[in-house]
């Protein structure tokens, strides 16, 4: 079991917030705590009265129906938290083919220059890691991924782009991710994938879900 002192609070008129994170947590502690957030979200889905159950980074925000008492939810959450499984789920593995560099990865050279390595080194490092979907947000189908190797951490662009194409693969600070739709963005774009991350016509519109694992595969696609 993870030793965690949860912080629980009421937030807004109908919201409840649970935070498990502590500053200075290691990446493995973060992942362990995030697994607790996934189980907690699952438990909340099994209890009626919450309209929105939104995991964040080692935290969870619930928007409750108007007839719910936030204080009762805090009480219930306090009871549920110690009983959650502390194990990290296996998670479905997705292999995402990426075309690195070129027109659709215009910042690859800049990222290589910033780290004083070759473009091939950047691609190798980006493809060698296994990433974990921590939570979804920002845009429909956008996954916040954990697991970017430290040698790839790169500052965001000084001037954000007004339009980043759907499918762009980028690095922003300690994060990497894929833009599911065309949107403004400040990340360094190192590649592009054709894999659709959000399909409005599908029964499950998001390709990725929290807990899933992900690998980037370099290819000409």
């Amino acid at each position: 079991m993870t030793q965690t002192v949860p912080q629980l609070s009421v937030f807004g008129e109908h919201q409840v917030f649970v935070a498990l994170g502590t500053p200075g947590d290691s990446p493995s502690q973060c992942l362990r705590k995030q697994a607790l957030i996934w189980s907690l979200a699952e438990r909340c889905r099994g209890r009626s009265g919450a309209l929105e159950i939104v995991p964040g980074m080692n935290n969870l925000t619930l928007s409750l129906e108007k007839d719910q008492q936030p204080s009762e939810w805090l009480e219930w959450l306090r009871q549920v938290l110690p009983s959650l499984p502390g194990s990290i789920p296996e998670g479905k593995l997705h292999r995402i083919p990426v075309r690195y560099g070129g027109d659709t990865g215009p910042d690859l050279a800049e990222v290589a220059r910033l780290h004083q390595v070759s473009e091939q080194d950047i691609i190798r490092a980006h493809c060698s890691a296994e990433y974990r979907v921590l939570f979804m947000g920002f845009l429909p189908g956008f996954a916040y991924l954990g697991g970017l190797p430290e040698q790839l951490h790169t500052p965001r662009r000084a001037e954000p782009r007004l339009q980043v194409a759907a499918g762009s693969v980028g690095i922003g600070g300690s994060q990497t991710g894929i833009y599911p739709a065309t949107a403004p963005g400040g990340w360094q774009l190192i590649g592009h994938t054709q894999v659709p991350l959000f399909d409005a016509a599908a029964t499950e519109p998001c390709l990725l879900a929290p807990g899933d694992r992900l690998q980037f595969v370099a290819g000409d696609c």
């Binding site: 807004g12 939104v54 935290n59 928007s63 947000g137």
Partner: peptide
């Protein structure tokens, strides 16, 4: 602050120091 769930009505303070009130089409985290 780690990314967290937000909702319409949340008043955020970006680095500019000028508040933004999130409305219905705002992002969710």
């Amino acid at each position: 602050i780690g990314s967290r769930g937000v909702f319409p009505g949340v008043v955020q303070l970006p680095p500019s120091g000028k508040p933004i009130v999130l409305l219905n089409d705002a992002q969710t985290t």
